[in-house]
C-alpha cells in the first residue's frame, strides 16, 4: 500500500505541471457547466450538455491520461528507476489507475452539480463505472505503446469511437444500433433515463462483455510485457 500511495502522491504533484493531462481532466466538467448555464433552447432535453459531455469525459480523459502517464514513464525510463526501488508493476499500475480514476471522479462530482440533487449520486456512480473501464483500457494502451507518441496515436481512434459514436447516435438510428456494443453507449442510455429501469439484461451483458474485454486485454498486455 505504501508504494501505491507514493505513486499516487507523485501523480498528484504532477497534476498541475502536466498541462496536457490537466486539460483533459478540467475541460469537460468546465465545458458542461458553461454550456448548461449559457445555452437554453426550446425542446432541449433536460441536462443535455451534462449528459453529452459526461460520455465524452468517460471516453476521453481517463483513456488518454492513463495511457499517456504510463507511456511517458516508459519512454523517459523513470519506470525502471521505480522498479529498482522495489515498485512492482501492479503497484505502479494500481497507483496510476487510482489517481486517474479519483481525479476523474472529482470532475464528475463537479459536473453533477448541474443535476437535481436526487440524481447526483446515481450520476457519479455510473461515471465511476465508466471511468474504471476507460482507465483499464488506457492502461492497456500505455503498456503496449513504446512511447508517448505511439500511445497518443493508439488512444486517438479509441477516444473517437468511444466518445463521438454515442454522440452521433442521438441523431442517427443506424449509428445507435451499431453503437450499442460500446460501454459508453450503454452508459449514455443510462444517463438518458437517469435510472436503471430501462437497463435490460442484454445491456448488462454488453456492459459486462466490455468490462471483460478490457480486463482480458489488460492481462494480455501485462503478461506479454513480462510484468507479472
Amino acid at each position: 500500500m505504501h508504494n501505491i500511495m507514493v505513486i499516487i502522491k507523485k501523480q498528484i504533484r504532477d497534476t498541475f505541471k502536466n498541462l496536457t493531462i490537466l486539460i483533459q481532466f478540467v475541460l469537460f466538467p468546465l465545458m458542461s457547466i458553461i454550456m448548461e448555464k449559457m445555452i437554453k433552447l426550446d425542446n432541449m432535453p433536460e441536462h443535455f450538455f451534462t449528459k453529452l459531455f459526461a460520455v465524452m469525459y468517460i471516453g476521453m480523459a481517463p483513456l488518454m491520461a492513463a495511457a499517456s502517464i504510463i507511456a511517458e514513464e516508459k519512454e523517459k525510463n523513470t519506470l525502471r528507476v521505480l522498479r529498482m526501488a522495489d515498485i512492482k508493476p501492479w503497484q505502479y499500475l494500481a497507483g496510476t489507475g487510482i489517481y486517474v480514476w479519483t481525479i476523474c471522479m472529482v470532475g464528475a462530482a463537479v459536473m453533477s452539480t448541474e443535476l437535481d440533487a436526487s440524481e447526483r449520486l446515481f450520476f457519479t456512480g455510473v461515471m465511476g463505472v465508466g471511468f474504471l473501464l476507460s482507465v483499464v483500457a488506457g492502461a492497456c494502451i500505455g503498456i503496449f505503446a513504446k512511447n508517448q507518441m505511439k500511445a497518443t496515436s493508439l488512444v486517438m481512434p479509441c477516444m473517437m469511437v468511444l466518445s463521438f459514436v454515442p454522440m452521433f447516435s442521438q441523431f442517427n438510428g443506424k449509428v445507435k444500433d451499431a453503437a450499442v456494443i460500446l460501454y459508453t453507449q450503454q452508459l449514455r442510455n443510462i444517463f438518458d433515463e437517469m435510472s436503471l429501469k430501462a437497463f435490460s439484461g442484454t445491456d448488462a451483458v454488453i456492459l459486462g462483455a466490455n468490462a471483460l474485454l478490457c480486463i482480458l486485454l489488460f492481462v494480455l498486455a501485462f503478461r506479454k510485457k513480462g510484468l507479472e
Binding site: 507514493v6 504532477d14 523517459k76 525510463n77 523513470t78 525502471r80 528507476v81 526501488a85 522495489d86
Partner: peptide, 22 residues
C-alpha cells in the same frame, strides 16, 4: 545514463519521490 528524471519536477521534488519510497 539511461535512467531518467521527472522532467517537470524540481530537483527537490525528484528526490522527494524516492525519499518517500525509501
Amino acid at each position: 545514463d539511461s535512467f531518467g528524471l521527472y522532467e517537470r519536477f524540481s530537483c527537490e521534488e525528484n528526490l522527494a519521490v524516492f525519499a518517500d519510497l525509501y
